[in-house]
Design a protein around this nucleic acid. Structure first.
Length: 212
DNA sequence: TGCCAGGCCGGGT
DNA sequence: ACCCGGCATGGC
């Protein structure tokens, strides 16, 4: 079986460096991480656009926003009632705990920050790790549905693999490098969107030569 | 037209 | 400690 490093290099050579996350600011990244939960990214883009258009894309504005208005704006991202509550509580926590300042968040060690993030309602393992990696620049690997499909498809993990199991495999198989974890996860999402969805198109996948 | 998308929570076993 | 239903819009 090929090494994970080969998979990464094959993907990077095929798609080029991805330079994620697609956001103009760390706070926009964190909002996007919540909005994209089990939802297509196209809807998230519309929701983010609506927030920008109404000058709501900052922690204080969201924390103090009218829930009914916020819900209307993020409607294209689905689950808008849940996500309205999650965005408002997250923004309020971000303001009260870190004064709405990402630089203050960065002063906490990775492990402590992860525990605090997971304690927030609506922040699970993937959202927490996404924020740690893409908003705060910590070397932590993000596992998602695409990661599972790719790893399982290529025989790296069993069908019942857990989040923590896949995260540990990746972090133990690769040098602990923030730029590497950043781009590798981005590459997995890119290849996943094109070739490794629920209905896969493995014939045209650039990873095909590495199939077991 | 039904199936699916870059999860997470809360209640039940 | 797992398992499962619920959450919702929009694209194909």
């Amino acid at each position: 079986m090929a090494e994970l490093r080969e998979y990464y290099e094959t993907l990077r050579d095929h798609f080029g460096l991805q330079n994620w996350w697609p956001a103009e600011s760390p706070f926009e990244m964190m909002v996007g991480a919540i909005l994209t939960q089990n939802t297509a990214w196209t809807g998230v883009e519309k929701a983010i656009g609506n927030l920008k258009k109404h000058a709501l894309l900052d922690p204080h504005s969201i924390a103090e926003s009218d829930p009914a208005i916020l819900a209307t704006l993020i409607r294209p991202a689905g689950y808008f009632n849940q996500k309205t509550k999650r965005l408002r509580s997250f923004a309020a926590w971000f303001v009260s705990r870190f004064d709405g300042d990402v630089q203050q968040m960065k002063t906490l060690p990775l492990a402590e920050m992860r525990v605090e993030l997971l304690a927030q309602n609506g922040i699970g393992p993937e959202t927490a790790d996404s924020i740690l990696l893409y908003a705060l620049g910590h070397a932590t690997f993000v596992v998602d549905a695409y990661t599972y499909r790719v790893l399982h498809r290529h025989g790296f993990v069993a069908e019942d693999a857990t989040y923590d199991e896949m995260k540990a495999l990746l972090e133990e198989s690769l040098p602990s490098s923030e730029p590497l974890f950043n781009d590798f996860h981005a590459q997995i999402v890119t290849v996943g969107k094109h070739f490794c969805r629920t209905r896969p198109r493995c014939d045209e996948c650039p990873l095909k030569p590495l199939l077991p």
